[in-house]
């Protein structure tokens, strides 16, 4: 009996469309919930590993990466529990899209220890060079009593300057601006706590 009613209804176009769309839609939803539950813990572990690896590169000898009360600001500690410095994630607009980087400063925030690019969509071969050592390494050891500046086509004169990448001034400037802004914020946060 019920079978017959269903068969009759199946002849109706609207009914058929609604039922089949509903079935496909809910099947898709359920499948994705399953996928999401499988993948999301792994994804957050990946992100955590990436952050910790970058922090270890900036502060060699880091044994423990500790969180602070502020999101995206981490403490790098040596094996003896000594504070090596603070690392923080900073992001802003580059030439083609968001640049996300992680940078490290000493505990007193007077000197930069280094920076690593986590994510960028800058032009390969030009802007994307911000992630490579020749540019990146310029940041370790910069003095922070002055805002970071960039110079074009010449060697830096002051200990707060870096040389911009030829042909990728916009990307270089973006990194400098992102860092300056975030360093100020982090300095205020940490001063407020002390």
């Amino acid at each position: 009996m019920a079978d017959n009613v269903f068969k009759k209804a199946w002849g109706n176009d609207i009914f058929r469309i609604i039922v089949s769309l509903a079935i496909v839609g809910s099947a898709s939803g359920m499948a994705l919930v399953f996928v999401y539950n499988y993948a999301s813990p792994k994804i957050s572990i990946n992100i955590k590993h990436e952050t910790e690896k970058a922090i270890r590169n900036i502060f060699p000898g880091t044994e423990k990466v500790g969180k602070t009360s502020e999101k995206g600001v981490y403490k790098a500690e040596s094996g003896k529990g000594e504070l090596l410095g603070y690392a923080f994630v900073a992001e802003g607009n580059g030439y083609q899209g968001i640049i996300r980087l992680i940078a490290g400063v000493d505990p007193a925030i007077t000197e930069m220890k280094g920076m690593e690019v986590l994510e960028s969509s800058e032009t390969p071969g030009l802007g994307a060079e911000i992630a490579n050592p020749p540019f990146r390494n310029q940041f370790s050891g910069l003095k922070l009593d002055h805002a970071i500046e960039y110079v074009k086509n010449q060697k830096p004169q002051e200990d707060y300057q870096i040389e911009a990448i030829t042909g990728a001034t916009i990307s270089s400037r973006a990194v400098v601006n992102i860092l300056n802004k975030r360093i100020d914020e982090v300095r205020k946060l940490i001063k407020a706590k002390q």
Binding site: V24, G25, S28, A31, L32, V35, Y36, Y38, A39, S40, K42, I43, N46, I47, E50
Partner: peptide, 19 residues
């Protein structure tokens, strides 16, 4: 919808295993 579902699955799989 079917295609988008599989694409989402592929995307999450890559993010989880080949970050």
């Amino acid at each position: 919808v079917i295609i988008a579902t599989f694409v989402t699955a592929a995307d999450y799989f890559l993010k989880a295993n080949f970050f």
